[in-house]
Design a protein around this nucleic acid. Sequence first.
DNA 1: TATGAATGAGATTTCATTCAT
DNA 2: AATGAATGAAATCTCATTCAT
Lengths: 195, 195, 195, 195
Amino acid sequence: MATSPSTPTRARGRATKAKLMTAGVAVFSDKGFRAARVDDIVKRARISHGTFYLYFSSKDDLFEQLVAQVAEELKSLTESLPIIRQTQESRDGLEQWLVSFIELYSTYGPLIRSWTEAERGGVSTQEDVLGTVADALALKVKIRKRKDFDPRIASLALLAMVERVNYFSVTGQVDEEAENLSRTLADIMLDAFFA
Amino acid sequence: MATSPSTPTRARGRATKAKLMTAGVAVFSDKGFRAARVDDIVKRARISHGTFYLYFSSKDDLFEQLVAQVAEELKSLTESLPIIRQTQESRDGLEQWLVSFIELYSTYGPLIRSWTEAERGGVSTQEDVLGTVADALALKVKIRKRKDFDPRIASLALLAMVERVNYFSVTGQVDEEAENLSRTLADIMLDAFFA
Amino acid sequence: MATSPSTPTRARGRATKAKLMTAGVAVFSDKGFRAARVDDIVKRARISHGTFYLYFSSKDDLFEQLVAQVAEELKSLTESLPIIRQTQESRDGLEQWLVSFIELYSTYGPLIRSWTEAERGGVSTQEDVLGTVADALALKVKIRKRKDFDPRIASLALLAMVERVNYFSVTGQVDEEAENLSRTLADIMLDAFFA
Amino acid sequence: MATSPSTPTRARGRATKAKLMTAGVAVFSDKGFRAARVDDIVKRARISHGTFYLYFSSKDDLFEQLVAQVAEELKSLTESLPIIRQTQESRDGLEQWLVSFIELYSTYGPLIRSWTEAERGGVSTQEDVLGTVADALALKVKIRKRKDFDPRIASLALLAMVERVNYFSVTGQVDEEAENLSRTLADIMLDAFFA
DNA sequence: TATGAATGAGATTTCATTCAT
DNA sequence: AATGAATGAAATCTCATTCAT
């Protein structure tokens, strides 16, 4: 239908749009895509109902713009992933990277979780976030082939673990300090890869 | 509001209710709680609209009854979890158990994923499925204390991994045979626990 | 459930809400609470269906707000009731007051009659309109104690009579001019009180 | 539509029908015609849903049969009303009659109140119960014409009073013994008629 | 650029009545 | 004569989007 309205040109307009996007992350995270009401978003942004459609052509449009934003940040993140070998250096590098990963997930995790739900036409599933990162990870892990599984699955498995534990950490179902978690998880990952 | 209508007394009624519950699992899994239409459910069950409300007082009610059913099955599953040691026997037992776990997830996984979305009043999140099973697993794993993490987190992490990989398997983003997966995952778990 | 939506801030909104309340009185009066359709109300107000729920969270909510409005007007009415003695002055004052009472009943009588029907939880019955006014009346009537009845019952009885006759007048089962009625009723009341 | 099913021929059938009518009085009285659910009625009668339609072709049909029953009893009541003059004998007779009237109202009052609500096609209003009785009463009262109102209005007014007070007595908003009430009301009536 | 109000398509829910046993 | 189950038309309510100012 209507294409996304043009980007606001003045400072005030940009500020309004930013407020709406921040509110969008919060509300989509809280309630999921479907349950999120445009009303919830505009209330949280303290913006009027009509103004929303000045910046986004629809609820979908807002979601897509948020996704694009996350994708952007994810891209830089995966690109910063170091080569992983069975060395102390790698361990430190991986741990460091996991801190960033977890940080990103603290902000966007629940939003990403609502990804699937928002898919319209089956497109988004393939653009799976974890899958993408896992593929990058698999390429960086210098691991010997094991007869029973390939690195891609292992990467996916381990990232899933990271994501989930972090999710529990964010929602308070597990209370460990972030720092602690990343070390623990780095340990498990390396143990698993190089068992 | 209205309380859940009484259980049907005759065979025909019980069959109808069962049909509706089966259809419910399918539709909630497909679309998530919010997007699922009562209409979708009754159409799939080939039952009239009004009949739905003969057995469930609302869409919420159906969901809650499904959750209760899953919880029940999960309970038996966790109870059947064997003690896990660093032996070949344990490996086989765990692998076997994972097959059951994965099977359960094949049926109810997507439903469980729509859990959060359906929560009304924040109750459900705490009754997290994985969390519950993870706690049971932690108790069964005979593992030496590692300085940096307790078995509960490890269990949770590993189950998260299992769940996620299985989810990818179900949705076709990873294609491995179930049998293969369970062995792979059992390997990773034991490696991680007893590294 | 949902709480009553907030009051409109601008003139147009207030006008719309007023239109809906006026239509509500008419429709509830015509058909009673249960038989009244939200559809009837919005059609009469020439307002769209969705707008109704912008101002009232439900049919119940509209009814409750109308009841509150009636209660408000009744309060002023009872407060304006003069002291009643066996004098010509009192007779005139009472007659005058009855005119107001009848006028109020012409507007809200049928609505008040649908009170009982709408009661949810048995609250409304006790807040009986006539009862309230009768109590006020009993306090204002300077009457000697009669051995067989107290002023409160007499007041109630007489007001009931007034209400009913007026109702018949409104529905055309009795055709007397309003002016005529109030004099007649004032006569009967004073005769009864001071017989 | 369907005409009323034929009267049951056997004892069991008659008992069932009686149970349904009793339940009908109770439920219509409690909730009014519209709000009364067939379900409420059959539950109270401890009869199955389907059986209801064995005896009554519709909810309306039940109501009409109940009305007919009340009308019957009312007819005998009005016929038993004595001539009323300004004598002690008349006072006693009227009081006695009011006892019967109140008794009838204790049973059917709330049902009669739901009369108007049930009217379909404006027929019932004219068959107003009080109106009918009032007319009978007016004929029996040997009263001199007052310049300002005719006996019919006075009768109606007074009966309305009687009905209403009795209604309050039934619902517990006034607590006087029935015996007491009838004397009080007889007093007011005669005072009013023969002031 | 911003807003409060209005809209209406589409969802959920109710309940008198019919059906099969 | 009795029953539990099924039906579907009609009602209530929701909410993304558009409109007028």
